[in-house]
């Protein structure tokens, strides 16, 4: 979220419709309990921050392009990518941060997109598997996965590849053992691990990991 949601001047808050609707909602719940100090507190809060409730507009910068979606605050980044932006490369495995199939890069860092909210990732640079190749030229990590057969069914592969890119960039792929440890957040139930390690190590040795 951008800084224009905030102001340090509570008194300068405009008496606009959104504040009234907030006061109506608050009043509906707390009606009789309202006391003057509470009212001023609520007013100050609305002036300081914008409450996102129900379907709301969000701007996500994905693979270099700003995309606008209308979604509830409970929509995870993974669901925003898959269900709202049709970027189905990021996979939903466990949906609880245990398998790594949903791995994407946010501001260059690998994360589990199933355990963060889309609304929290506005203003950040999100990179998904769809953003790695340059046209028909595969990213070196993608090419290495093809060369080393780093997959069988392919479901975990987008997450493995993004995690591999980050692993190399972090400097955590300097040996096979280190690569295995730092790739351990990405499970592969087909058991392609030896080939995945070979692919990540090759990219590291050739010095080409950048997303």
């Amino acid at each position: 979220m951008t800084n224009d949601s905030f102001t340090d001047q509570p008194g300068a808050a405009p008496d606009d419709g959104s504040r009234r609707s907030f006061m109506k909602q608050a009043g509906g719940i707390l009606g009789l309990a309202l006391t003057p100090p509470f009212v001023s507190q609520a007013e100050r809060l609305t002036a300081l921050s914008r409450k996102v409730q129900g379907v709301s507009e969000m701007r996500l910068k994905v693979n270099g392009t700003v995309r606008v979606i209308n979604a509830e605050p409970r929509v995870t980044l993974l669901d925003a990518l898959r269900e709202y932006l049709d970027l189905t490369g990021s996979k939903k495995g466990c949906d609880l941060g245990q398998c790594g199939a949903c791995t994407v890069l946010v501001d260059g860092r690998r994360i589990n997109s199933c355990l963060t909210l889309a609304v929290m990732n506005q203003g950040r640079e999100i990179t998904t598997i769809e953003g790695l190749a340059k046209g028909d030229d595969l990213h070196p990590m993608q090419a290495a996965f093809v060369k080393h057969d780093g997959f069988q069914c392919g479901y975990c592969t987008p997450g493995q590849i993004l995690s591999g890119v980050a692993c190399v960039n972090e400097g955590h792929a300097t040996s096979d053992a280190q690569t295995r440890e730092w790739m351990s957040g990405n499970l592969c139930r087909c058991g392609a691990y030896p080939n995945i390690v070979a692919a990540v190590r090759e990219v590291q040795q050739k010095g080409g990991g950048k997303a």
Binding site: M1, L48, S49, R50, K51, E72, P73, R74
Partner: peptide, 9 residues
Amino acid sequence: NNFAYQQVG
């Protein structure tokens, strides 16, 4: 469950 969200400074 559905919930509201706000960021504070």
